[in-house]
Amino acid sequence: MISLINNFLSIQTIQQLTSYIIGIVLVISILMAGCRRLETMVRLFIFQSFGLVLIMLFAGAISHNKDAFLISGITFFGKCFLIPWVLMFVLQKIKINREVETYISLPTSMLLICCLIALVFELTTNIEIRKEVHVLSTNLLSASISMILIGLFIMMTRKKAFVQIMGLYVMENGILALTVDTIFEMPLVVEMGIFLDLLIGVLVMGVWVYRIKQSFDTINVEELRKLRG
């Protein structure tokens, strides 16, 4: 596999390609933050994950790291098939496919996120990480941190529990990107652990969302405020 990729693509090409993919992934993140339909959100998530899988493959090819292939395989299977499938299933169960009211209007939040990305890129360019990490693109670190923050932003501004889960997955994708960025440092076990966490998370949250829907007849997390003592 390594030789396959290396035969077809030179390192420069890979770096260029990666930059493009990073851009696309970031744009998808912004779109997710501005997306009203829940189903579309899941689809966007699939594309985003696929982009990351590609990045990871390239990273593995360059660094000759076999773990990267394993992780990308698992990610591909999990995030492009398994998790979306569960999410779609939950969506069908709860029969809600649009989010009407948000804390910040969606266009505004998209604008804010653009500002956010700019800020993060400005702030993180000078973070000192050892040289060999930036094999792919110097932007990967900034992009991954932006994604984490975007995920958080989505969770922050939306009310529906389902979208909160999506926000969490965007965050996780950010962490995954960070893993790629530090591919020589982060051990396999940690990545596996995070992935397992998410898998359990999606199951639990599916049940959770369903239960909230059952008992409060809505999936607005605001209702949770009633639990406060």
């Binding site: 800020l119 993180t124 009310k159």
Partner: peptide, 25 residues
């Protein structure tokens, strides 16, 4: 500080993260 609002808690984390980045810089 505990409003019970999930979004507010997330905002705390968000602000903390941003501040961390700024502090790093």
């Amino acid at each position: 500080i505990q409003s019970g609002n999930l979004q507010l808690y997330l905002a705390y984390i968000f602000i903390t993260l941003i501040l961390c980045l700024v502090w790093l810089r």
